[in-house]
Structures are given as C-alpha cells and as structure tokens.
C-alpha cells in the first residue's frame, strides 16, 4: 500500500481539516445548546453569495465571502435584538437572498463552473499552503477566545437572563460568537464545501452531547468525533475514490447514530 501521507496535498488536507474540525466542534456545542444550529446553514448559503461576488468582482472569493458573511451575521443578530425579529426568520431571509445574489452573479459573470462547484462541494485535497495557515490561525483563535470567555459563554448559553444580572455582557458574547461562527463557516467551506459545512458544526456536536455529562466533556467528545471523522473520511475517500466532503459528513453522522443508540440503551437500562 502506498504511503499517502508522503503526499503534500494529503498532509495539507489533514492539517487544515483537523484544525477546522476542532474549531467547528467547539463552536458547535454552544450553537446546538443555544438552539442556533441553523445559523451555520444560513451563513453557508450567504457564503455562496459572497464567493460569487468575489468571482464576479475578481476579488479573492474567500476574502469577499468572509466580509459578507461576518456583516450579515451581525445584521441578523441586531435584527433579533433590536427589531425583535425571530432569528430563524432573519436567517431564512438572508440565506435566501445570499443564494439568489450568488446565482445571479455567477450566471452574469459566466463563472457558474468548476470554480464555483469546488466551493459548493469542497476541495480539501486541493487546499493550498496559505489556506492551511488560515485554518490553523482560525482554530487557535477560536480556542483562545473560548478558553478566555469560557465561563461567560457557558453561563450565557445555559441561562441568558441570569447571566445578564451577573454583569455578563451577553450582547458582546453574542457578537463574538457570531463573528467566530462566520469565519469558521467560510474557512470550513474549503474542507466540505458550502453545502455541507453546517453539518460539520452540528453533527459532531450533537453526537458528543449524546454522551457528555459535563460541558467540558461535551467539547472534548465533539472534538474527537469531528477530528476522527475528518481523518477517517480523508483516507476512505482517497482509497475508495469517493468525494471527501460527503464521506466526512456521513462518517460523523454514523458516529451520531451510534452515540444516540448508546444513550438510548443507557436510558432504557436505567429506567428498568
């Protein structure tokens, strides 16, 4: 069997994939417990609009998507806070508008082609060196910020109202989480693509939450599920000639089913 690890593309894919998976899992636990899981899906759709705008204006698509998605996530947050709009409504509006802009611009620029398809379905095996650097920087930023504000994030996620009466600046935390999620989604699209990046946030976290007894345990379990899905997914995809994105997500879904089954058995046993 040839040693795939000797290939530069595989090394880059593994490195970037692992760090992005880690960032996704950590943020995912907060988002799932805040019942904000769909924000990832919404922001991914907006990413499509951002990428298409970048391709249309011939500005780096990643940079353009990053700007558009961060801006939109903060607008969604303000619409919920200030205008009292339901968050899923705001997400629904902006994600559809993002997709619509993307489709129109891609058609106008004549770039509804391989370029855009690689963004839609991911191209982790074609990831470049500087993108690996971005992925590592992003993951370290997420870890440092979450570690610094860990207690505040936990309190706010568990009981926002009481957190406010303890002097926690919940608005600021919401903003930080929105920006971190946006950046993670945009960078994560390189691994599994726009269509599946939200799953990388939701599924490993939901799997970890099935078996965790404490918050820290939930983060560790989710990170293990996420990272092992990326590693296994990359190898399975390489040897069986399957698309990496779909394989990674399906593997994490499989772990979710197994963990869910274990939880169900534990619950049934404890009732008996």
């Amino acid at each position: 069997m040839e040693n795939v690890l000797s290939y530069g593309f595989m090394q880059r894919a593994l490195l970037a994939g692992l760090f992005i998976a880690l960032a996704c899992a950590i943020l995912g636990v907060f988002l799932v417990l805040r019942r904000d899981a769909m924000i990832g899906h919404g922001l991914a759709h907006i990413t499509f609009g951002g990428v298409a705008l970048g391709l249309f204006l011939e500005i780096k698509p990643l940079l353009m998507a990053l700007t558009v998605v961060v801006l939109c996530s903060l607008i969604i947050l303000k619409l919920r806070e200030k205008a009292g709009m339901y968050e899923d409504t705001a997400i629904g509006i902006f994600s559809s508008a993002g997709m619509a802009v993307g489709i129109i611009l891609a058609t106008l620029s004549g770039k509804l082609n391989v370029d855009l398809f690689s963004y839609l379905f991911g191209s982790i095996l074609a990831i470049e060196k500087f993108e690996v650097g971005i992925a590592i920087t992003l993951a370290l930023t997420v870890i440092i910020i979450v570690a610094t504000f860990y207690q505040e994030f936990l309190y706010q996620t568990f009981d926002t109202e009481s957190a406010r009466t303890s002097g926690i600046r919940v608005g600021l935390l919401d903003g930080i989480l929105a920006v971190l999620t946006s950046v993670t989604i945009v960078i994560g699209m390189k691994v599994v693509g726009i269509l599946l990046v939200a799953a990388l946030i939701v599924i490993p976290s939901a799997a970890g939450l099935q078996l965790a007894n404490s918050f820290k345990q939930a983060m560790v379990l989710s990170s293990i599920v996420s990272m092992s899905s990326v590693i296994t997914g990359l190898f399975v995809a390489y040897y069986w000639d399957l698309p990496a994105s779909g394989t990674i997500i399906l593997l994490s879904f499989l772990v979710f089913l197994i963990f869910g089954g274990i939880r169900l058995i534990k619950k049934t046993t404890s009732i008996e």
Binding site: L154, F158, A163, S166, L209, A212, N213, S214, F215, Q217
Partner: peptide, 12 residues
C-alpha cells in the same frame, strides 16, 4: 439534556 453539573451551575 444540557450537560452541566450542579457544581458548574453554582460556579456561574
């Protein structure tokens, strides 16, 4: 479902 211990809640 929220994975938080009694200790973690009081610490808040």
């Amino acid at each position: 479902f929220f994975p938080v211990s009694v200790r973690e809640v009081v610490a808040m």
